[in-house]
Every structure is written in structure tokens, then in C-alpha cells.
């Protein structure tokens, strides 16, 4: 039995301990905002936060998140009010196809929570997610606009 909280809600799932969190979220819980891109931790589309840390859920077995607090893209906005990162993504018109953006937003939110004013080099180092549409210039602008001093 796997037990964890997703977006504040307690879940108990009768699933194999080695099932990746990604598929527990998508296929068992029907939370489709977290995306499958590569399955081998190479693209970041599946990024969620586990106790606030960015984690690639496609290679994270549910046994590793037992008792943890998991936040997915669906859990960011509280009462329909967007987080500053989500708002910056709209202000800078970041998404194109949008498929990578759940993972991007989760990774960037985690970065800014631990380092509110990252340098460009720190941004480049922390955000290694793939965006096939090439929205990187806007992602960079959006993150810069969110720096604590900005």
C-alpha cells in the first residue's frame, strides 16, 4: 500500500512499490497535468515537488515518496489565484505547445523557493528541462522578472 499526500489530499493506493510516481499520478489518480516526456529523467516534463524539492517523477518509485507531500501543477494555484510564476508565464506569453510547461513551472517554482534571486548561471544550472518548442528566451525573461530584487 502506497501512502502520500498530493496537493494536500491524502492518498492510499494499492499499487506496486516500484511503480513510478508519474504513472500513479496520471493513470491511478487521473492527474494529467504532470507529463510524460522521456521516462528516463532526461527531459523534466514529469517534474513535481516532493516536500518542496523538484523531482523527476518518471524515475521516482512510489516507495521513495512514502508519507511525503507531493505538489503537482494542479496544486499550485490556490482558489484559482495563480502563483507569481504562473502569472509571469502568462505575462511573458511563455508556453507554445505547452507540453513541457508543467515541468518547467514546477522546476522554476522550486528553484525560486530555495533561491529567490538566482543569477543567470544559477538559472541555467538549475533548469535543465527540455522544451522542444524552444520557449527558453521567454522562460529566462520570466524568471528574471521574478527575482526577489526585480
Amino acid at each position: 500500500m502506497a501512502r502520500f499526500r498530493v496537493n494536500g489530499k491524502e492518498h492510499q493506493l494499492d499499487i506496486e512499490p516500484d511503480m513510478p510516481l508519474l504513472w500513479a499520478l496520471r493513470d491511478e489518480l487521473g492527474l494529467s497535468g504532470t507529463k510524460f516526456g522521456c521516462g528516463v529523467a532526461a527531459c523534466g516534463a514529469c517534474t513535481v515537488q516532493v516536500n518542496g524539492n523538484p523531482v523527476r517523477s518518471c524515475v521516482t518509485p512510489v516507495s521513495a515518496v512514502e508519507g511525503s507531500d507531493i505538489t503537482t501543477i494542479e496544486g499550485l494555484a490556490v482558489n484559482a489565484s495563480l502563483t507569481p510564476v504562473q502569472q509571469a508565464w502568462i505575462d511573458h506569453q511563455v508556453p507554445q505547445c505547452g507540453y513541457c510547461q508543467s515541468g518547467m513551472i514546477m522546476a522554476v517554482s522550486a528553484l525560486l523557493a530555495s533561491n529567490p534571486s538566482p543569477s543567470d548561471a544559477e538559472i541555467d544550472g538549475a533548469i535543465s528541462n527540455v522544451c522542444r518548442c524552444g520557449t527558453y528566451p521567454r522562460i529566462r525573461q520570466a524568471i528574471r522578472s521574478l527575482r526577489a530584487s526585480a
Binding site: R26, D27, G30, L31, S32, G33, T34, K35, F36, T72, I73, E74, L76, A77, L82, Q86, W89, I90, Q93, V94, P95, G98, Y99, Q101, S102, I105
Partner: peptide, 27 residues
Amino acid sequence: IPRVDIPAKVDGSAQYGIDAHLPGMLY
């Protein structure tokens, strides 16, 4: 003009083909 499809792409609600989730579905 701001794009109309963007809000759904920042909160996980945009539905892609891969996101079809239907009762009793198999994979």
C-alpha cells in the same frame, strides 16, 4: 494580443491527446 490558449497551459488544465482519461480505460 495575448494568446487565448496560454492560461490553460500554466495550470495543468490543457488537455492533450495523451491526457484522455476515461472510465474503465486500458493502456
